[in-house]
């Protein structure tokens, strides 16, 4: 089993591939604008690694305060980048079609759906995920409120709910239970934690802390 233990500190494999990306990144930036070369590489099945590298383009973005310089395929969504390449699995994949809200993250402070965002389009942007919502080991007031009010059951929609809840207050859409219900309707919860989620948001809103 030791070979396959989950590795929370980014597996070596990840780092290695990232180094690979970096090696190619300057070349890749140039290549990215010459489609025929790339397509040719793909269709004539050059060495797969090479072809794979050509299809990648560079991306710089900040995730939870950490700057990342990556080379990725344009088709990679922000959600898959977070989950599969950066090992930030707190952002959930519930539907992958923008219909459930489980992948809600903040991009430049705005709540958006990571599954419907191409990672390459986030160049230069600041992404905050559930892992980066609070500093260090402490919980964000919204996370605390979700614990206290039992605003979760299975926990799968929870990170998205919390990211959405924080934005809901910041946007000024948490002035009544009804308003919260409407503005939280983009985050589905199949377990039925809604009344508790609303209670958690109302309490954080009432506390009036800067979020």
């Amino acid at each position: 089993m030791t070979d396959h233990q989950p590795d929370d500190n980014n597996s070596e494999g990840l780092d290695e591939s990232r180094r690979d990306f970096l090696k190619h990144s300057s070349l890749l930036t140039a290549m990215a604008l010459t489609p025929s070369t790339v397509l040719k590489a793909a269709s004539s099945q050059w060495d797969e690694r090479l072809a794979g590298a050509f299809e990648k383009i560079s991306l710089s973005l900040e995730v939870n305060g950490t700057k990342h310089s990556l080379a990725i395929e344009p088709r990679v969504t922000l959600l898959d980048l977070l989950r599969e390449q950066l090992a930030l699995t707190g952002t959930k994949k519930g539907c992958d079609y923008g219909q459930c809200g489980a992948c809600t993250v903040h991009v430049d402070g705005r709540r958006v759906l990571a599954c419907m965002s191409l990672a390459v389009m986030q160049e230069g942007r600041k992404v905050t995920t559930i892992e980066g919502l609070a500093g260090g080991d402490t919980l964000h007031p919204m996370q605390e409120a979700f614990v206290k009010h039992d605003g979760l059951q299975c926990g799968y929609c929870t990170p998205g709910q919390i990211m959405s809840a924080v934005a809901c207050i910041r946007e000024g859409h948490a002035n009544s239970a009804e308003e919260i219900q409407e503005y939280m309707s983009g985050n589905l919860c199949r377990c039925g934690a809604y009344p508790n989620i609303v209670a958690a948001i109302m309490e954080v809103k009432k506390e009036g802390k800067k979020l």
């Binding site: 989950p6 590795d7 929370d8 930030l88 952002t91 919980l139 996370q143 614990v147």
Partner: peptide, 24 residues
């Protein structure tokens, strides 16, 4: 009582079936 796993769930640290970062 609050849930014993609530903290893991609200912080995104709870890992579900497709979220184990296994080598290769």
């Amino acid at each position: 009582m609050d849930r014993v796993d609530a903290r893991l769930k609200v912080s995104g640290a709870a890992r579900y079936a497709a979220e184990y970062t296994l080598k290769s």
